[in-house]
């Protein structure tokens, strides 16, 4: 296998190298790639969409259709992880552990055992004992709101600076992941349940696609945000800008929901009780 791998790798490499010699010079502003399609994006983005960040305008408007499917890819991945890993809850009864909040004593209930504890005083803990490290917990508690705010900021300012729905969504998702990693998966689940994170992703993509359909319903083409000008008190150019924002929010929601969803599935192997 190793030699075969080397041979294949060598062959492919040789082919690629042979083509690279004929490439246009690296970093040449006169190369075809820079001359044919892209100048329009750069020169017209401000006029046509009122978005200075050319990447955002191309991403969400000129090639918005791509982005819709990109978000759908993420959604697919979320659904796929769920489909593959999720174990139905009814198969679950297995040993559980509870900790008394005040004394820190932990005790274990055997498989199948049923007991009703006053839940205010007892908290369920993971079956693999983990230290209750309040330094990490405390610091993360302080960080998480800021991370979330930053994520929202990134979504909202995708027009003017790098960032946008996807990055913001990942950051938002990361904040929940951080909660899970620093506290426990259960805490994260309490804050953002399975259902919510699972509904976030289709709703997010639906906001994107729905915007397109709205445009279609208003008599324009699919994803032609100009159509929003008939609903909003702005001109067609600003309508594009707002349309892009709307779409970015959808992307952000979808990505956030999906990232959390995938993480929960991976981290708990579909059991949703404990995990990384």
């Amino acid at each position: 296998m190793k030699t075969l791998g080397l041979i294949i790798v060598g062959l492919v490499g040789a082919v690629l190298v042979s083509a690279t010699v004929n490439f246009p010079p690296f970093g040449d502003p006169e190369s075809p790639a820079s001359l044919h399609v892209s100048p329009r994006y750069l020169e017209k983005t401000l006029e046509e969409t009122a978005v200075p960040n050319a990447v955002t305008s191309v991403l969400a408007d000129y090639r918005g259709f791509d982005t819709m499917f990109e978000t759908t890819v993420i959604f697919c991945a979320g659904v796929a992880c769920f489909l593959l890993l999720r174990v139905p809850r009814r198969r679950l009864p297995r040993p559980r552990q509870y900790r008394h909040r005040l004394t820190g004593l932990t005790f274990r209930i055997k498989e199948g055992g049923e007991v009703f504890l006053p839940l205010r005083e007892f908290e369920p803990v993971d079956s693999i004992w983990t230290p209750h490290d309040f330094i990490i917990e405390k610091v993360c508690r302080y960080l998480i709101p800021f991370i979330q705010l930053f994520g929202l900021y990134v979504i909202a300012h995708g027009h003017h600076s790098p960032g946008g729905g996807f990055q913001g969504g990942v950051i938002l998702g990361a904040s929940i992941i951080l909660l899970s990693v620093s506290h426990s998966l259960r805490t994260a689940l309490k804050r953002m349940g399975e259902k919510i994170s699972a509904l976030f992703s289709p709703v997010g993509v639906f906001i994107f696609a729905g915007t397109g359909v709205l445009c279609l319903g208003l008599g324009y083409r699919f994803l032609d945000y100009q159509a929003l000008a008939t609903l909003l008190p702005v001109g067609p150019i600003m309508a594009r800008s707002y349309g892009i924002l709307l779409v970015e929010v959808g992307v952000g929601m979808a990505v956030m929901g999906t990232m959390v969803w995938i993480f929960k599935n991976l981290a708990s192997r579909g059991r949703y009780d404990e995990g990384l």
């Binding site: 490290d133 330094i135 302080y142 960080l143 800021f146």
Partner: peptide, 20 residues
């Protein structure tokens, strides 16, 4: 500020992991 918050925590997490 964030680095000052995050860095010691990360260090602490690592050292704690190693110790345990």
């Amino acid at each position: 500020v964030f680095v000052f918050l995050a860095s010691p925590t990360a260090t602490h997490a690592i050292v704690d992991a190693g110790f345990r």
